[in-house]
Each structure stands twice: as C-alpha cells, then as structure tokens.
C-alpha cells in the first residue's frame, strides 16, 4: 500500500449544528477526563460531514474539539483504513480481496468494475461518483464475494449483479440487493433441509 498523502488546502472545517449535538452525545459516553476516547467516532462523524474524507482541517478541528494534541488525531486517522485522507467519490467501492472472496471470484468483480467505470483500483471516476478500492477481509466470507459501498454490504455478487447495482447508484437510486437462492441458500442462512 502506498502511504496516503495528507491532503491540504481544504476549506476550514467545523461541525454542523446537528453534528455538534451528536458529537457531544458521543463524548458523553466516556467518563469525565477520558474525552480522548471519542477520537475515532468523532473523526468518523467529521468524515461523514466532509464528503467521505478527512481533510487536515477536519482532523485539527476534531483534535481541538476533544482537546487532544493534533498529532494524536492524525495518528488515529492515518492508522485506520476506514478513514480517507484523500477526497473520494460519492460512492466508495471497497472490494474484498482476501482469500475467501478471492476464491469466490473477487478478481472478476474487480475487472468488471474497472471496465464498467473505466478506472483502476485507487482511482476516482471523472464524475466524482465512484472511487474503487481493494480492502482486506470485510468479514462477510459466508457470502463471498463481498463488496462494501459506503456503509452498505453487497454480498454473493456476480459481475452482472454488481454492475446493475452500480448503474442503480449512478441513477441516484438506493438498490436493495438481498440475494436468494444462491447455491441453494437464502442470504447467509443454511441450506433449507439442514438445521446448520
């Protein structure tokens, strides 16, 4: 993995009123004097408000909000792969490439997306709609191959079903994809005749 550059030159960040309220609620979960524990949730909150990525300003703002040294917030933000330090498209597609998904055809999914969107892993489409990224295990091995798009998991995919989902997203719809009758199972349930 290439080290991500910390983005610069973004406009000054601050929490919107409702995010302020949420942030205070999150901080209140932790004991007095342990506000620093809220660092990860607040960075997530900031990322959601900031179009899916953490600008330098946003990280500084969160650090300041919690009264922790900025560098501690940068450490957390750069440690977790869920925090994006570069702008991403409206939909962040994360293809699982770990062994079960790979065995179940994640390479085909990747190829299909790359062809459909005309971009490579790590890139963002020109219309700023999609960013494609490979990730390690999403924890959905039971329905491999899996793809995470923003907060939603799409599982037991084929190239065709995935492209259909991307097309729906591009149209502004929110596709519901609950695969049934995949290899004789519905969703991640066991086969019908078996208890387990």
């Amino acid at each position: 993995m290439m080290a991500m550059a910390l983005s610069t030159g973004q406009p000054v960040f601050s929490f919107q009123p409702e995010a302020q309220e949420q942030a205070r609620a999150i901080v209140a979960r932790y004991p007095e004097g342990r506000q620093a524990s809220a660092l990860a949730p607040l960075l997530d909150l900031a990322q959601r408000q900031n179009k899916g990525f953490l600008s330098r300003d946003a990280i500084f703002y969160v650090a300041d909000f919690l009264d922790v040294p900025a560098i501690r917030a940068f450490e957390v933000a750069s440690f977790y792969s869920m925090f994006n330090l570069e702008p991403v498209g409206l939909y962040l597609i994360q293809i699982c490439r770990t062994t079960p998904c790979w065995l179940a055809g994640s390479d085909d999914l990747k190829k299909a997306i790359e062809e459909h969107l005309g971009l490579k892993v790590g890139q963002t489409s020109e219309d700023k709609l999609f960013t494609l990224r490979e990730v390690e295990c999403l924890g959905a091995c039971v329905n491999a191959p899996a793809v995470q798009i923003n907060d939603d998991y799409y599982e037991a995919l084929t190239p065709e079903t995935l492209i259909a989902i991307l097309k729906a997203l591009a149209r502004g719809e929110k596709p519901v994809y609950a695969p049934c009758n995949v290899a004789g199972r519905c969703s991640c349930a066991c086969k019908k005749e078996k208890t387990c």
């Binding site: 993995m1 080290a3 910390l6 040294p69 900025a70 560098i71 501690r72 940068f74 450490e75």
Partner: peptide, 23 residues
C-alpha cells in the same frame, strides 16, 4: 510528549508504512 511537553511528533500510518512525522 513527556519531557518537552510539545506533542508534535507522531507515528503516522501503520505497520510497514509507519512513519515518524511532525504534525
């Protein structure tokens, strides 16, 4: 962090990519 009291250096990124970086 401890002696100078100016927490300006940190370990950014992780694992193989860890870099000591100033804020």
């Amino acid at each position: 962090d401890e002696i100078a009291g100016v927490p300006s250096l940190g370990g950014l990124y992780r694992g193989e990519d860890l870099e000591i970086t100033p804020v």
